[in-house]
Design a protein around this nucleic acid. Structure first.
Lengths: 329, 329
DNA sequence: TGCGCCCGTGTACACGTTTGCACAAAGAGA
DNA sequence: TCTCTTTGTGCAAACGTGTACACGGGCGCA
């Protein structure tokens, strides 16, 4: 049953043409007789012939593969974006290769492996990889950086996110409601994104003569949010916890309510970041700094399309965050 | 900056050997002088040479690419499994190509596109694609079916899930607690998995002289669980809702509590399926028919490794479900 | 010295496409 | 009829590897 796939030369023999003509039958704007083409396509269907994309890529110098570098697949925020991106790629006949860099696995080696497949584009969602490594490993493919790391390199395209205005709104409401002992629960200690997000809040606080009274570091997970929230409340008497993502915010809220027996937002307000679908669930109803994921991915896709069209001029697109008002702040 | 990637022939010239020797330097068990190899590797590092995997694949007839067919990336249950699988593949120097078949996109065309890339293995998580289509589109690659569809084809490997024992436990507790008006909320009308899961419960009920008093169909989403639960309680007076997955169960629970003002599990019990991490969150604490995702993916990986080793004999591995007891039933 | 063997390397071909060039046939314009 | 363009096709050369085969040299052994 597992018979070999038929090649263009074999099909050529069966139809009675040359293999070059087979190839032409499959490229839409090639010079070929209409009658010949339909004869070939019929035979291809009959014998199950499909052009070999590996061979084509070798010849073309275009693989139509896209490396997508992410921290994790499970993380809801990333997952929503990945879903949108994968759909957009598929609609353009591009195939995504997912590189999962979050864990212990050797990121650099993994990216090098993907680079050997001559991917046409690289989309870097993960802020665990540095820009320097990215351009080093993909010298021929201009990467698209999606993390918010400040770029000093004019050679890569990027999406920049600006949340300062929305953050100002959030802090405004919190202070209006009497909050003053703010704390920040970040998701990781080594991430540019996390540092930048924290800075938005710190700046907004500074404009009002305030500052964070304490910091904690989790792992972007529910459990870490749950666990880290306890000392923030217990020891630092915080009345407003700003969390690095929505999942940790949900964990923190649960800890405040269940473990500490306090009410949210009256005793302690909790603010998330990302604006994932789950934040809007009735049982969560989270106040969160949210990003329009559709607009975000649209921007990425636009950059990819420019690259694909041969426009190598790098560009930076800036998006602004909005606020989802919920019952937690 | 975007200079072309260096080829093995060019590197050969620089080092003063033939391109064949370059190739040998990169295959661990080739006959090559130790001194020559280290000289080549040093030069490769210096000039940034990496063997071209596309060319190698063409030559080898092995791409080291794996097509992973899924319904969606956002779905938490699938996401957890995808994460595990991707990690396992990466550890084996295999690269995953994700095919997202859930939506409107033309599944068959998408799979055909992936097939042209000569993937070494195909893992089908989605039960939206039929077995017949799979073997048709990947004639040369024996696919690994992960959906639970009853297989009449001896040519594919499969993972089979058996939840009947755990389901019996669950139904036992529910009836002991006085539940009698069971309803089933499925995630889709066209899925084998969903039908099979429903059958486990229906059989367990039948053994006790019971049957579902009503059925509803959602979309595996929180919102659909929320919406579909209302009429089940309101109109059919159900006191136990079995949901097709955990996310819908959370939605159903919220609707029962917030919209209908009833208590869970006293008035209405809610049972999920999948055993995703979120089910164990403090705010959810869901009773659910759960699968050991690690064991599940281990089984998949074992099948892949056999295929990779050239053992084409198809095999079926059976896993059993367990129960996570929570506060909702 | 002569024979056989292993080691290290080069030569050449194959993998399955795409595409520039050549060329025959057909049609158009004079 | 002669030339010029257009159309459809084949030939052959890439694309960058891996590897079977050949071959020269060094070594052991008789």
């Amino acid at each position: 049953m597992s018979r070999k796939r038929i090649t263009s030369k074999e099909l050529a023999e069966l139809v009675g043409v040359s293999s070059a003509t087979i190839s032409r039958a499959f490229s839409p704007d090639a010079r070929i007789g209409e009658e010949t083409r339909s004869r070939i396509l019929a035979a291809a269907r009959k014998y199950g012939y499909q052009p070999n994309a590996i061979a084509r890529s070798l010849n073309n110098q275009r693989s139509r593969l896209v490396a997508v570098v992410v921290n994790a697949i499970g993380n809801p925020c990333e997952a929503e974006e990945q879903q949108l991106l994968v759909h957009a790629l598929q609609a353009r006949q591009l195939l995504p290769i997912i590189l999962c860099c979050g864990d212990h696995s050797d990121r650099l080696q993994l990216m090098r492996l993907a680079a050997t497949y001559q991917v046409d584009h690289v989309v870097i969602f993960s802020d665990m990889v540095s820009l320097r490594d990215a351009v080093d490993i993909f010298p021929t493919t201009k990467p698209i950086i999606v993390s918010f790391e400040p770029l000093d390199n004019e050679d890569v395209s990027a999406i920049r996110i600006d949340g300062s205005a929305a953050v100002d709104e959030i802090v405004d409401r919190l202070t209006t409601n009497g909050k003053s002992r703010f704390t920040y629960l970040s998701g990781t200690s080594s991430s540019w994104i996390d540092k930048l997000r924290r800075k938005w809040f710190a700046d907004a606080l500074a404009r009002r003569g305030l500052a964070f009274v304490a910091d904690a570091t989790g792992t972007y997970s529910y459990d870490s949010g749950f666990k880290e929230a306890v000392p923030l409340v217990h020891r630092f008497k915080t009345d407003a916890i700003i969390c690095g993502n929505d999942v940790m915010a949900i964990g923190a809220r649960d800890a405040v309510k269940r473990v500490l027996g306090k009410s949210v937002p009256e005793d302690v307000a909790v603010v998330g970041q990302d604006g994932i679908a789950m934040a809007a669930w009735d049982c969560n109803d989270l106040t969160t700094l949210s990003l329009d994921h559709v607009a975000f991915i649209n921007a990425v896709v636009e950059l990819i399309e420019r690259h694909q069209a041969g426009d190598d001029k790098p560009d930076t697109i800036t998006l602004t965050c909005s606020t989802r008002w919920g019952a937690t702040a």
